[in-house]
C-alpha cells in the first residue's frame, strides 16, 4: 500500500492494516480455490472411453470437502469483522480531543476551508477563509466540520485515508491528525455535477513555525 500512496495521518497505517489483513485472508482463499478449480479441470479432461463418476453430493466423505471450507470461511469472516470494526471504532466512533477545528464546506465546484485564526477558535472574527487549499499543522489533532451548500460532495484526502460525505443541511464532525509535512491532494469523491472532475484541492501540512507564520499573515484581525 505504501508504495502506491504515502501514509500521512495517524490512522492511515491502521486502515492499510485492515486492507492487508483482508488481502492475506482472501488472497489465500482466492489462490486456493482457483488452484483446486484448475486442477480439477486438468484432472477431469475427457479421455476416450472413460466415463465420468456418478456423484450425487450426498456422499459424506466428499461432502465434507465443501462443508469444512465453508465453516472456515465463517471463521475468516470473524477475523475480518474484528479487525475492521476496531479500526472503524477508532476512526469514526470516537473523537479524540482536538487541538484545533476547521470547517470544510463543499459547493459546486470548490472547497471552502475555514481556519480558526490566531485565537484558535472557529467562527470568530479572525477566521481565515480559503478556497481549495487547507492549511494544517503537522502532528496536531484536528476536528473538521463538514458541510455542503448544494449537493452531496465527499471530502477525501487519500494520503490520510480519510473520506466522508458532505450533506447539505447537516454538519458532520470527524477528525484527523497529520503526520507528514508536505502538500497533498484533496479530492471530491461524490459525483456533484459537471465540475466534479475538477473539484480538487490541496492540503498543506506545515511544521509549527511555518503554520504559525501563515496564520499570522492571513488572520484578518491579527493583533
Amino acid at each position: 500500500m505504501e508504495s502506491l500512496i504515502q501514509q500521512a495521518s495517524s490512522y492511515a497505517g491502521s486502515i492499510d492494516g485492515v486492507i492487508l489483513l483482508v488481502g492475506w485472508i482472501v488472497g489465500f482463499w482466492f489462490i486456493a480455490v482457483e488452484g483446486i478449480f484448475f486442477w480439477l479441470i486438468w484432472r477431469g479432461r475427457a479421455k476416450p472411453g472413460v466415463k465420468s463418476q456418478y456423484i450425487t453430493g450426498k456422499e459424506k466423505h466428499l461432502k465434507r470437502w465443501i462443508t469444512w471450507p465453508h465453516a472456515l470461511v465463517l471463521v475468516c469472516d470473524v477475523f475480518i469483522v474484528i479487525g475492521a470494526a476496531k479500526v472503524w471504532y477508532d476512526i469514526k466512533l470516537q473523537l479524540p480531543e482536538a487541538d484545533s477545528t476547521v470547517r470544510v464546506i463543499g459547493q459546486q465546484w470548490a472547497w471552502v476551508f475555514q481556519h480558526p485564526g490566531m485565537d484558535n477558535e472557529l467562527d470568530t472574527a479572525d477566521d481565515i477563509f480559503t478556497t481549495d487549499t487547507l492549511h494544517v499543522q503537522n502532528n496536531r489533532t484536528y476536528h473538521y466540520r463538514l458541510e455542503s451548500r448544494d449537493v452531496l460532495h465527499d471530502f477525501s484526502v487519500p494520503v490520510f485515508r480519510l473520506k466522508q460525505d458532505a450533506i447539505p443541511g447537516r454538519s458532520i464532525t470527524g477528525w484527523f491528525r497529520p503526520t507528514v509535512a508536505g502538500t497533498f491532494d484533496v479530492q471530491c469523491a461524490e459525483i456533484c455535477g459537471i465540475g466534479h472532475g475538477v473539484m480538487g484541492g490541496r492540503i498543506v501540512i506545515e511544521e509549527a513555525s511555518e503554520h504559525a507564520a501563515w496564520i499570522a499573515q492571513n488572520s484578518t484581525s491579527a493583533q
Binding site: 485492515v18 488481502g23 482466492f30 479500526v87 472503524w88
Partner: peptide, 27 residues
C-alpha cells in the same frame, strides 16, 4: 465465469470491511 467471478467476489470483502472501505469507497 467461475474463475473471474471469484476475484470479483473476494474483492467485495475488502469493501464490506468498514475500516478498509473508508479508504476504498468510491475509488
Amino acid at each position: 465465469f467461475m474463475a473471474e467471478f471469484l476475484l470479483g467476489g473476494v474483492t467485495g470483502i475488502f469493501l464490506g470491511a468498514t475500516g478498509a472501505d473508508i479508504y476504498l469507497h468510491d475509488t
